[in-house]
């Protein structure tokens, strides 16, 4: 009974996190802020759900598989986010109009003036 309550709490938290992430994906104004909403929440939710799965089955082989999934997502999600964010930035996606500052633009401008 205790374990069922724990699993329920984990699953509900995960689904609420995912729901917030998708609301954020819909509402937020530009690419980097949208990625803030999705990448971490996706990883977090998968970790929570997989923990619930491990608790539910309570078997060694399942737990090993669950740990593999969690580690894999934790390693790959930031790499994918970095790749997409960089590619999007370089291909000229506009940042939000209220963005406070943009040091990366300065950096690329400096580099262009250096090389030319």
């Amino acid at each position: 009974m205790m374990i069922e309550i724990l699993i329920s709490v984990l699953l509900l938290t995960a689904s609420i996190v995912v729901l917030l992430a998708s609301i954020g994906l819909l509402r937020l104004p530009d690419l980097p802020t949208r990625m803030h909403a999705t990448t971490k929440s996706g990883v977090f939710a998968i970790a929570l759900i997989m923990l619930a799965v491990a608790l539910y089955f309570a078997r060694v082989d399942i737990t090993a598989r669950v740990l593999a999934i969690i580690t894999f997502t934790f390693v790959t999600a930031p790499i994918a986010a970095h790749a997409i964010g960089r590619a999007g930035y370089l291909s000229g996606v506009k940042l939000w109009s209220k963005t406070v500052r943009d040091d990366l633009k300065d950096y690329y401008n400096e580099k262009d003036t250096d090389s030319s």
């Binding site: 803030h36 929440s41 934790f74 930031p78 986010a81 970095h82 950096y107």
Partner: peptide, 28 residues
């Protein structure tokens, strides 16, 4: 380091400078 910075919500690594001394972090 950049992976963990990207994993913390609110910060996201966009690029690394070519001489590997500076990260460009998008903060919310």
């Amino acid at each position: 380091v950049s992976n963990f910075i990207s994993l913390t919500p609110g910060t996201l690594v966009l690029d690394v400078s070519e001489d590997k001394t500076t990260l460009f972090v998008h903060a919310m």
